[in-house]
Amino acid sequence: MTIDAITAVLLAMLGGAIRVSTPFLFVSLGETITEKAGRINLGLEGTLVMGAMSAYAASLHSGSPWLGVLAAAGAGAVFGLLHGLLASLRRVNDIALGIALMLLGTGLAFYWGKAYIQPQAPTLSAFHLGAWSDSPALRSALDINPLFIAGLLLAFALHWAFANTRIGLTLRLVGDSEAAARAAGAAVIPTRIAATVLGGALAGVGGAFLSLFYPGSWNEGLSNGQGIMAVALVIFARWQPRRCVLAALMFGAAGAIGPALQSVGISSGYYLFNAAPYALTLLLMALTCSRDTSLKGAPGELSLNR
């Protein structure tokens, strides 16, 4: 491989990392909020797919991709609300409920989405930050999508809000110790429901990215479990929004290896390289979750802690 080819692969991986990481970023930030409040919503895979479908449909009918993003957030919030309310019932396990909602979300999205597989909806356009360069590889790598930037800002905003606002502190308190929250007079259940709604809305936006930017169309194989991987990523990021960015970029880069190699003509093992994010998930989980150490930094009320 020549130097040029290596540069091209690295640039393609950088661009790919930013592109592919965006849905991971939104879903993991959403799940971070939910888990900080003490609940696990495994249904975000379904929310992601539902968001993708709603975004595409809304964009097609209204002609505005941003209305599509809004619709996705709304659909995600509805799923979050469903999870939040049902998980508040006595003897309902949030993890089992999440799996049920994951199946419901994907199922409903496929059912309602049949009509949107063919037509072409208006999609989001990127900021061309690489316009100054005459290298097409660099230009394409620097085509940054607006949702990635929004996600980046959101991650830092969340990091700040968790430490410096009453809402942020209360959310962490509720997720860390229900007894302490009750003693402090915090509204435990409403806070958890609100956190799940917000988490769902963000996962919906992640879905909007899939159907409205990259790959930028609606079909049933759109997500391929990215919602589930993003939940795993939260554990790897130790429930810290800024580490979610790092983790999402890492997963994005791993996901971009296959297409990047293909772009310079290496297509043997394409499917093997496409499995990189899944292998990475396994590897990270094996490395970070050992039997003898409990999950440091995990909110105390998570059911994986009890």
Binding site: A163, N164, L169, D176, S177, A180, A183, G185, A186, G297
Partner: peptide, 28 residues
């Protein structure tokens, strides 16, 4: 003061003390 502690384990001591206040400002 209860026999079983009512401190949130992943919050700092300062945060735990602050959260006990009945009226916390929206921005700290």
């Amino acid at each position: 003061v209860f026999q079983h502690f009512t401190l949130a384990p992943n919050l700092s001591v300062a945060e735990n003390l602050l959260l006990a206040q009945p009226r916390l400002p929206a921005l700290l």
